[in-house]
Design a binder for these strands. Structure first.
Lengths: 194, 194
DNA sequence: CGCACCATGTAATGCGTTACATGATTTT
DNA sequence: AAAATCATGTAACGCATTACATGGTGCG
């Protein structure tokens, strides 16, 4: 998948691996992320299979950089992937839910603490998904009119991220209440050791 | 992670790998899933590290089965994991959003079709997350009163899944509208090949 | 007759993370 | 003086998927 993310980003502009990482963190990072080391490896593979090409640009006072560009084969591969519709639902993996599911032995307080930590984190995240992100999409669209339609799609994905965090925050708040009502104050099974 | 999922399930009841797969698909499958082959391998590892133990039970007219049970060391490992609070947010990976982000070259109709397919799928999924799932949690809680508190947590995770699908459906509907308004009817860049 | 279910697993491969390694420049 | 940024990568490892292999029972 990362493969197509990189092809997609390169279809806008040739870039270095380092640079792609930053792009990704700021835009598509909401729904797809990757470590630098993996990005470099994937770029290498893409080059081996002829979907991207690269050249080294010397710089002064800074390390040389290798700039990748999408090839025609790469553009075809990207389009082919885009054209094949997704006919299943992504299975989700959520560690918090996994923990919560089995957390009864922890007892009330530990569970509530865990949920409060997550509530905090999600409220912080919420800030990133909101106005600033919307503004920066708008800014790009205003500056490059030929990207206006792309921007509609970017904005749609941003709103999905925003709705997701909003939903998660509401769920956390609600669950905090439910659990503090349902659980007794004493820890039920805790501390069998030492 | 699967490791803890299995320990968690086994902390309720000793079971076979085959059986665990079914349990997982029906309960925790909403937020964590695994293939059978991986379950078998993980169980083996868990046994090698002494967190579970197993014995083979012969059956008539059916293949023998290997029943796994959690050990004391396994219970400790599970509790240790539960006790360590999650202090980060799970990064999400969503292929649909990834595709959508780069889909402008597909043109209006192909994009709308893709979204409609997903809308269908999510509406089907929605049915699973609703009443039937809630009822079956309630049924277990009623039958085994000592699991009443566990059931509160199970229900919380179920509601999260439900809210998630609801949110996704609303977002898809909204996005369908936005795109059909913003995009022109003709396909902009499509079909450069053949 | 064929398919689904029960039940177990191996092998090959792919995807992704973490840790390691390097080294100059700019900011605090 | 220390930390962050720019810039690239390798190596080891772990987690997960897919395909393959086996074989009996029960149902339509």
């Amino acid at each position: 998948m990362l493969k197509y993310m990189l092809l997609g980003q390169l279809s806008y502009l040739p870039q270095t691996g380092y640079n792609l990482k930053q792009e990704i963190d700021q835009s598509t990072g909401f729904f797809w992320h990757a470590e630098l080391s993996q990005i470099y490896r994937t770029l290498k593979q893409l080059e081996e299979t002829g979907l991207v090409s690269s050249y080294v640009q010397a710089q002064e006072g800074r390390p040389d950089k290798r700039i990748y560009a999408i090839t025609e084969a790469g553009q075809r591969a990207l389009l082919d992937w885009l054209r094949a519709p997704l006919v299943e639902i992504e299975p989700v993996k959520d560690t918090l839910l996994l923990k919560l599911f089995f957390s009864r032995p922890l007892g009330k307080e530990a569970i509530l603490t865990q949920l409060r930590i997550q509530l905090d984190l999600h409220r912080q995240l919420r800030a990133l998904y909101g106005q600033p992100a919307a503004d920066s999409i708008r800014a790009v669209a205003d500056q490059y009119p030929h990207l206006a339609l792309d921007a509609v799609l970017w904005e749609a994905t941003r709103r999905c991220g925003e709705s997701y965090v909003d939903m998660y925050i509401r769920w956390l708040e609600e669950t905090l209440t439910v659990i503090s009502r349902a659980f007794p104050d004493s820890d039920p099974v805790l501390d069998e050791e030492e």
